[in-house]
Design a protein around this nucleic acid. Sequence first.
DNA 1: TAGATTGTTAATCGATTAACAATC
DNA 2: TAGATTGTTAATCGATTAACAATC
Lengths: 215, 215
Amino acid sequence: MFPHPVIQRLPKYLTHVHELVKESVEWVSSGNLAAALGLTSSTVRQDLSHLDLTGVSKRGYSTERLETVLRRELGTDRMQRIVIVGAGHLGSALSLHGALKENGFETSGIFDARNDIVGNKVGRFKVRPMSALPSVVRNRGVELGIIAVPADGAQKVADQLVQAGVKGLLNLAYVHIRVPRKVTLVDARILASLQELSYATRALRKKKRTKISNR
Amino acid sequence: MFPHPVIQRLPKYLTHVHELVKESVEWVSSGNLAAALGLTSSTVRQDLSHLDLTGVSKRGYSTERLETVLRRELGTDRMQRIVIVGAGHLGSALSLHGALKENGFETSGIFDARNDIVGNKVGRFKVRPMSALPSVVRNRGVELGIIAVPADGAQKVADQLVQAGVKGLLNLAYVHIRVPRKVTLVDARILASLQELSYATRALRKKKRTKISNR
DNA sequence: TAGATTGTTAATCGATTAACAATC
DNA sequence: TAGATTGTTAATCGATTAACAATC
């Protein structure tokens, strides 16, 4: 098991290394990676030392090898099945979002509790009722669920997804969700991120003001 | 300036305290909050000690006061203006997402670089061309920008938003973006979160397998 | 060879947790 | 009063950074 901060950085390495491979760059040093991603070379070397590859003195790391082991570690070397609960704007958008499939996540179904929405078409998907969730998860081998309902329904949906047998949940709702220990939950934090930005831009202004008053 | 981990927890406190206020709960102890949000009471007390409120022995913290100071600290006590760049599925969904406005973020416009999309209606919004971005940001006092374009166009959009004068960026694209120091960038990490989940569920399985083989 | 870069150990830094006197 | 809870200091834990011998 890698330390959590390392896991959070792996996707960053992957996107950058993927670019390099596309540009036919064969080698990348810890210093290059650090500069590109805003880290120190020390952190990069520590992180990569967890992976199944070794660097080469004077050259660095093979970009191709690095991409391969990163994808393998993140489990996106194979297709993983996901379900989306909530066929509102956000859920629909995700089910149609090409980047998911391009990166190893295939949507197996989109669900909604609202009768007036069940049956609607969302792209090539037909919105299914919640009662169909367990069988889809079981039959299609779905591992991950996305919670795309309003905050007040999110915990219930989480419970239903866990009950249906998914192993991990991505929560798009702005509310704290509790899950059993056997299930992993990650919050998408869209609103929380905006609030963080709001805090930071306010703090910057405050700092600037202080600086000005220090003249 | 608060430590970054604290800032990341403030929205969690806010959602929970908001619930409590709605339920007419007047007081909450650090132990209650910790249990509800999966923290220790020690962390909660340390975090709240940064805020402009004091607890009361034997009772805890006033939920109303706590909500007020959290909102003020996060800057969501007033409306903040945002622009969305990218009128694809995700950008459109966000512009229509009620939770943003409910939480203090008002969309001032949605923009796209594609001529065939400019002019389309997205809810009550008409998609504007990128050339209109600077004037909207200036005239409406827009502080934050959301990047909702595919990865290969994200850096360019970020540059344009910075040029237009926004103070903070929320990046929904799966790519690392660089911004000048005066601007704050937060990554939404939707795909990265799925990859993290993918890693975690694999790791859990691996652990279980190890456990079994230990019999 | 000389110099760049890795891999790893040790030092530093910062966040979390524990502990407990003060307080209501 | 007795007991619960805060606010804060000190201890612990873990992550990041620095340093440097090994290596190509």
